[in-house]
Simulated assay, not measured.
Amino acid sequence: MTTPVNWQKSSFSGGGVGNDCVELASTGTHIHLRESDTPAEELHTTPTTLAHLLRTLKARPH
């Protein structure tokens, strides 16, 4: 699997310079997610699977 080069910080992570944010990157048909404080540990998924997860989480009552 290709290693991502361009990581994007989540807009919900705030504007600080600390290492407490979620980062995303894409390579071909895969989405890569990681926490900035442990960048060597990555989660890999597809856009379809990630979209399904996000829809499910949004649909849950708070």
Rank of each mutant, 00 (worst) to 15 (best):
T45D: 11
E41A: 12
K9N: 03
K9P: 01
A40I: 06
S26C: 07
T3R: 13
S13W: 03
P4Q: 13
D37Y: 02
T45G: 10
K58R: 15
M1A: 12
P61R: 14
T2I: 15
L53F: 13
G14R: 12
R55H: 09
S11C: 01
T27N: 07
N19S: 05
H52G: 15
R34S: 01
T56A: 13
L43Y: 03
T45Y: 05
G28P: 03
A51C: 10
S10C: 01
H44C: 08
F12I: 02
T27K: 12
E42N: 13
S11K: 11
T3Y: 12
G18P: 01
N19K: 07
R60H: 03
H52P: 09
L54K: 10
G14E: 09
S36K: 06
Q8E: 05
H44S: 11
L53H: 10
E41I: 14
E41R: 15
T48W: 14
R34V: 00
E35C: 03
N19G: 04
T27S: 14
A25N: 03
L54H: 07
D20V: 10
L50S: 08
T2L: 15
C21Q: 07
S36E: 01
G18N: 15
A59D: 12
Q8P: 01
T49Y: 04
E23R: 11
D20I: 07
N19Q: 08
T45A: 08
C21K: 09
C21A: 03
G15D: 05
P39E: 11
V5A: 10
T2H: 13
A40D: 15
G15V: 04
E23W: 11
T49F: 02
P39V: 07
D37N: 04
P39A: 05
L33W: 01
H62I: 07
K9M: 04
H32G: 00
C21E: 05
A51F: 08
L54E: 09
L53P: 02
K58F: 06
S26Q: 13
K58W: 10
A51W: 10
T3L: 11
T45N: 07
T27V: 12
L57F: 09
T49I: 07
T27Q: 14
E23L: 04
G14A: 06
N6S: 11
T38S: 10
H44I: 13
T45Q: 06
D37P: 00
T38D: 08
R60I: 06
L50C: 08
A51G: 09
G14F: 09
R60D: 03
H52K: 15
V22A: 08
L24K: 12
G28R: 09
T48P: 07
F12V: 00
H30I: 00
T56I: 03
S26W: 09
T29A: 14
H32T: 00
G18C: 06
S36T: 02
L33M: 02
T3W: 09
T48A: 15
H44R: 15
A51R: 15
S13T: 02
S26D: 03
T27E: 15
D20G: 06
